[in-house]
Every structure is written in structure tokens, then in C-alpha cells.
Design a protein around this nucleic acid. Structure first.
Length: 152
DNA sequence: GCCAACGTTGGC
DNA sequence: GCCAACGTTGGC
């Protein structure tokens, strides 16, 4: 089993939205590195930290979810009314991929970015690496488990 | 709103 | 293939 961190802006789609919907597709990623992970690497059963980025209140990890469907074409790319339409993406030749995730938990204590930076046992995680702007990336098991422990 | 650090685009 | 210009992300 692998572990990941997914970023989302809470104004757009937050942990409470996922909690309500229970299962939702993680659409809208338009970055090739992320696309490759969505298509090839993220497997059913993998665990995901849900991260709120650009948050007015609290920027940090706010809960967890689990992958319930592996990579398939992001149909929102074909919808001109969607957030990120891409005319090059077609049914025959999809470019963008997404996975489905299922809500697992909302943290009692969100693990803030500032806390993650200050916690020595989280050293080396990708979130706080300089220049990392990917909205999806792998987490080491020990970091995943440490963050869940802190959150709950 | 600012800006650093990318990623993407397109002319050549 | 190079690289300048531009767009985006996301913390602050």
C-alpha cells in the first residue's frame, strides 16, 4: 500500500465537502507529473492525506481518504463549462486522469503547515521541500502515520 | 497583494 | 532544441 498527499483549496473543495459526498472523483489536475501518478501509480486501497492549501483559516492536513477507483480519464476536461477544460483532451485520446477517493476521517486537530515544518520527525517529507508545487505527491509511510497520529 | 519557483508556450 | 515571455501555485 502506498501513501499520498492531495492538495485542494477549501474554498473550492474541502474536507467537509468530501465528508458529505463520501466518494468523489479528484478531477481538475492539469500537470503532467500529477497525471502520470494518477494514471500509473495511485492504486486502489492507497491512503491519502487531505491538505487544505491557500486556506484563509488553516493551511495544513485536515483529514484522510482512501483511493477506491484507479486512474481513469478526467471527463471534466471535455466540459467547456468546467474549471479547467482542455480542447486537446478527447474521449479517444485522453490526456488527463483522475482517481476516486472515499472519505475516511476528519482530524480533530488539523496538522498545520507551520507545525509540520517544526516537527523533527517529519523532516524530509515532500510537502516542505523547497519549490514543491505539485498538488499530488507520495508520502513516506512513517510521515503519513505520524501526521495521522498528530491529527487524531 | 506580493513574489518565488516552477511549468508551459511558441518563435526562431 | 533553446529560451524569453507568460501563466500558475501557494505561502505569507
Amino acid at each position: 500500500m502506498n501513501y499520498w498527499l492531495f492538495k485542494s483549496e477549501p474554498d473550492c473543495f474541502g474536507i467537509d465537502d468530501l465528508k458529505e459526498m463520501k466518494i468523489e472523483h479528484w478531477d481538475g489536475t492539469r500537470n503532467y507529473q500529477v497525471r502520470n501518478m494518477m494514471r500509473d501509480d495511485i492504486k486502489k486501497g492507497d491512503m491519502v492525506l487531505f491538505y487544505h492549501s491557500n486556506a484563509k483559516k488553516q493551511t495544513g492536513v485536515v483529514g484522510t481518504c482512501q483511493v477506491v477507483r484507479e486512474g481513469y480519464p478526467d471527463f471534466t476536461a471535455m466540459d467547456p463549462a468546467s474549471e479547467h477544460p482542455d480542447p486537446k483532451h478527447t474521449e479517444e485520446k485522453p490526456i488527463w486522469y483522475m482517481v476516486d477517493v472515499k472519505f475516511k476521517s476528519k482530524f480533530k486537530n488539523p496538522v498545520l503547515l507551520s507545525t509540520i515544518k517544526e516537527t523533527p520527525r517529519l523532516d524530509g517529507n515532500r510537502l516542505t521541500q523547497k519549490g514543491n508545487r505539485l498538488s499530488v505527491f507520495p508520502m513516506e509511510k512513517k510521515h503519513y502515520e505520524a501526521i495521522v497520529k498528530m491529527g487524531e
